[in-house]
Design a protein around this nucleic acid. Structure first.
Lengths: 221, 221
DNA sequence: TTGCGCAAAATAATCGATATTATTTGAAGA
DNA sequence: TCTTCAAATAATATCGATTATTTTGCGCAA
């Protein structure tokens, strides 16, 4: 009995790994995803790879071509604009619902999530990103709407992919996003939905406008 | 060379077929989906089945259990309420955007889609349902927002599943839903977003309230 | 030179079988 | 009679190989 090096099934490992590779841009937009190539890189069989790619298809990170395999989703300014728009709408919705149902438990959850994010600011980028997402999801999770939360999570990943593609992650981490996060947290804890939502959407739109600018040029592939 | 009886790959056929079986309730909510059983019923190998189930997982129609296979998604009053809510929000958004971008082509598309639906009223249920969905999707499709449209399509299927489970499809087809559809179409053609949206949401809420009532009892499994 | 068609190679999709993992069954002991 | 443990069973997950499809590359003719 040999330990398979990580927890979960081969499919789940492949899913997480390929997803990560796409999100951070290690696999470029529109790149052909050859089963055999991935099979080698991830040291597994063809079945887990195919299953993982099928899952990613539904996350809008991979496209399936009739009988010609898979490729990563293409990027475009239109696509980015759509993601940004939808995020703003759906997260506004979820955040307001979360706040409307606020409980002490949830309050503690978001405070904790925020703290972890702040503490990891100087850690590896991957760690920070993980906590950053966790914080944003925690804000929304009290809406008690699993489907909506899933949509938001998907959109988050689609969005973050653009950030990685623009290569501006370091800037982003340094830009005074801390204040923005703190402000959102404070408003949420105070159960002030209007302020929280306004700050959250501003947070997105600021980053979004920045990326939109970059997309006008040629950061695609 | 033998023709594979239907177009598309084995995976796609399996996907469509299993999806259909879940939506119409042939596979009950929470039912265990045994690979071998499906493999026999669909006369194909295990790989296409697994891939199809992976795709359905992301449509929220199938749940994957750690290392214990798949089952159909469970149903509940809460789940239904969430679907209804989200549908109303997202379709309102999409419809308004569609109307805002109205063109003559789109106008003709929806008139045509409506006509086909009306004409198929006395056809087989499956045919009618197909055109019914096509009409609703056509209304939203001019929003030029593929992701949003996909969300709406998913929610449509999740919702229709409840209608089938309640066994009220025949009632529904007869109830004077025709007037509601005509009204929505007319308002959309007139580019009156407020009226169109109001009628659309009313359409959903009426059906929704009816189903919610049934769910209070025991139409689950 | 360019376009066409056919053959060869590459790749994807599928299958059948094996290994792995959960679940059930049944017997022994308390 | 109930609990516990282990073997048997059943089902899943995975692999390796086969089949079907698409793409590539070459030769030939216009």
């Amino acid at each position: 009995m040999d330990i398979p090096s990580a927890d979960g099934s081969a499919t789940q490992r492949a899913y997480r790994k390929i997803r990560q590779m796409i999100v951070v841009g290690e696999l470029r937009p529109g790149e052909k995803l050859k089963i055999d190539g991935l099979r080698e890189r991830l040291e597994t069989g063809a079945s887990p790879i195919r299953e993982a790619l099928s899952l990613l298809t539904s996350d809008n990170l991979v496209e399936r071509l009739d009988q010609r395999g898979f490729r990563t989703a293409k990027v475009s300014a239109e696509n980015f604009a759509e993601i940004l728009n939808l995020r703003c709408t759906l997260e506004d919705l979820a955040l307001r619902e979360s706040i409307a149902r606020a409980t002490q438990d949830w309050e503690e959850d978001i405070v904790l999530a925020h703290h972890r994010m702040v503490r990891s600011k100087d850690s590896e980028q991957e760690t920070f990103e993980q906590y950053h997402k966790a914080f944003h999801i925690a804000l929304l999770s009290n809406a008690e709407s699993p489907i909506l939360l899933k949509f938001c999570s998907q959109l988050y990943d689609l969005n973050i992919r653009y950030r990685f593609l623009a290569g501006s992650t370091l800037n982003y981490q340094r830009r005074d996003v801390s204040d923005e996060h703190s402000g959102i947290l404070a408003a949420a804890v105070a159960r002030d939905a209007d302020t929280a939502s306004e700050k959250l959407l501003n947070h997105y739109k600021t980053t979004g406008a920045f990326l939109s600018g970059l997309l006008g040029n040629g950061s695609l592939s």
